[in-house]
Design a protein around this nucleic acid. Structure first.
Length: 514
DNA sequence: GATAGGACTAGTGACACTTC
DNA sequence: GAAGTGTCACTAGTCCTATC
């Protein structure tokens, strides 16, 4: 990639090509680079490339014309090939022959990152392609597999399948009337459509990106607004229309009803609250699926699951839950996981009920999005943060609600598998479980995300007396010690913060020396 | 001791909504 | 209209370990 980037700077500008038009026709600068790289004495020696280097010019996409003659398009150099010569004098080429096929297979790596994200040129790792086809075989039978094998054989034996069967179609903007007639006939025939399998790995992209966060770039403008499909589907699927893979799903559901649908995607469409309306629209029967780590895909660093799921669109079921096998990066099956779609209200809706902005706060707790992905953003402090989620007021009346929220969200380690799992409104049992409440308080007091410090304001959260920790100075507040000891009674010591005191019994969270 | 690379963690703000 | 919510095919920095 380093050499390719240097080639982009020095050689590409000297090739007489209108790159904008070339890109529209599916030819990228990477094709010219491959032609250069896989050549000997300025002559491409690898066959079946989109572009070939022929000494002092490139030949593109050779075809047989209507007279049976070779019809080729060429591109030359604007500097008499000077920059090209100087560049390749520095590097030895071609690489070892054993690498040739791999290099050509990974042409996708030469597609710019932003184009990949929007147009779906992400390479699906071979192990997941093969595993997904195994699942399709199990669900749809051996006939499906035979068809795939036949296609593979024909391609391997040089059949000209690409010319006849590959066509360009802008799924997010083009009308289905632009599809080849033969395919339209199948899609429009209810009986044939039932046998149709839509098998895709669509692009995953939303407008937002962490590049904005880190000031290394900007949001992906236009992802939400620039696609015709967004306008059409926003009313049907709500916020989900911001996500490109959801547009692909909705489009298939809308235009190719009753078919079989198999896709790689994020699991948000099952779990995410933004997909509530989407699930009212997308009614289908789940057949089989698996999840894999996202970072096994190229250029993906995030720790979240990508799912391969197979759906029967002719059965109109609400997506309540789906049970998937879980595979690690080495394709080892490591268990099963159920993803729930029909979820009750979130834990954030619940904790909000106890948020009293009028009473004096003894701390603030951020309530980021209620899933494991955002747990690292959850913290308690004496100051309101600048993050734009709600900062919940801890006070003397709601201290256990806050501690339960904090402890429940932090007690299970976030992993790539539970990344988008949601925290929900708790059931009632906890209210009578004093041990559980005490455990949550102790957990909250000593957790690393408890960033309460005397530096910021009066610290009401010190669970020890001055003598217990040999402090030379008197603490500004002994609220927590008294709270734990149960000395803060409604008719007792009510001087702290001047509020109603609820505790009547000692909390057994520590064994104290008597 | 220097360097490379991996594991791990903190945290930031625009956008497109929805709710108050 | 203001405030709140959900989102990020996240990034950048630190620390630790392996290797030379």
């Amino acid at each position: 990639m380093v050499i390719y980037n240097k080639w982009l700077e020095t050689v590409k500008p000297t090739i007489a090509v209108n790159w904008e038009i070339a890109n529209k026709n599916g030819i990228i600068d990477g094709d010219f680079y491959l032609a250069d790289l896989l050549s000997y004495e300025n002559k491409t020696i690898k066959e079946k490339l989109f572009v070939l280097l022929k000494k002092n010019r490139y030949e593109l996409d050779r075809r047989i014309d209507k007279f049976g003659m070779f019809n080729t398009r060429t591109a030359s150099f604007i500097d008499n090939q000077k920059a090209h010569q100087e560049f390749w004098n520095k590097y030895e080429r071609p690489p070892k022959e054993s690498y040739w096929d791999y290099i050509v297979e990974r042409r996708d790596l030469l597609v710019p990152q932003d184009i990949r994200e929007r147009k779906g040129s992400f390479f699906t790792p071979q192990i997941w392609v093969e595993l997904s086809q195994k699942y399709l075989t199990e669900v749809l039978g051996e006939d499906y597999k035979q068809d795939v094998d036949v296609m593979k054989d024909r391609i391997k034996n040089g059949a000209n399948l690409l010319e006849k069967h590959v066509f360009q179609f802008d799924f997010l903007n083009d009308d289905f009337s632009k599809l080849p007639q033969a395919l339209q006939k199948i899609i429009n025939d209810p009986q044939k459509r039932k046998k149709l399998i839509i098998y895709i790995n669509p692009p995953y992209a939303e407008a937002t990106t962490a590049r904005t966060v880190t000031r290394t770039g900007r949001n992906k403008s236009g992802v939400t607004k620039n696609y015709k499909l967004n306008e059409y589907f926003n009313a049907k699927i709500g916020n989900a229309s911001n996500e490109i893979f959801a547009l692909f799903m909705a489009h298939v559901y809308d235009k190719i009803p009753n078919s079989k649908f198999a896709l790689f995607s994020k699991l948000k469409f099952i779990q995410g609250s933004n997909f509530k309306k989407f699930k009212e629209y997308f009614l289908a029967k789940f057949m089989k699926g698996f999840v894999i780590p996202a970072n096994t895909f190229d250029n993906v660093k995030g720790h979240f699951p990508i799912g391969f799921t197979i759906w029967n669109l002719s059965v109109k079921n609400n997506i309540k839950n789906i049970n998937c096998n879980v595979f690690d990066k080495n394709e080892n099956k490591i268990g099963k996981k159920r993803f729930y779609g029909n979820l009750p209200k979130s834990i954030n809706k619940w904790i909000k009920k106890f948020d009293d902005k009028i009473l004096d706060a003894i701390a603030y707790m951020g309530n980021p999005s209620p899933d494991f992905q955002h747990n690292s953003q959850l913290y308690i402090s004496m100051r309101k943060g600048i993050e734009h989620f709600n900062f919940w007021n801890f006070n003397t009346d709601n201290i256990f609600n806050g501690c339960v929220y904090f402890a429940v969200r932090n007690c299970i380690k976030a992993t790539w598998i539970n990344d988008r799992d949601q925290f929900l409104t708790p059931k009632k049992k906890w209210e009578k479980d004093i041990n559980f409440q005490n455990d949550c308080l102790a957990f909250t007091l000593f957790h690393g995300q408890n960033r309460i410090s005397s530096e910021n304001a009066k610290n009401h959260w010190i669970p020890f007396t001055e003598s217990e920790v040999n402090s030379q100075e008197k603490f500004e507040s002994n609220f927590m010690v008294k709270f734990i000891q149960g000395k803060l009674k409604a008719n007792g010591n009510g001087d702290l913060l001047g509020k109603k005191i609820l505790r009547t019994e000692s909390l057994c969270i520590f064994s104290r020396k008597k």
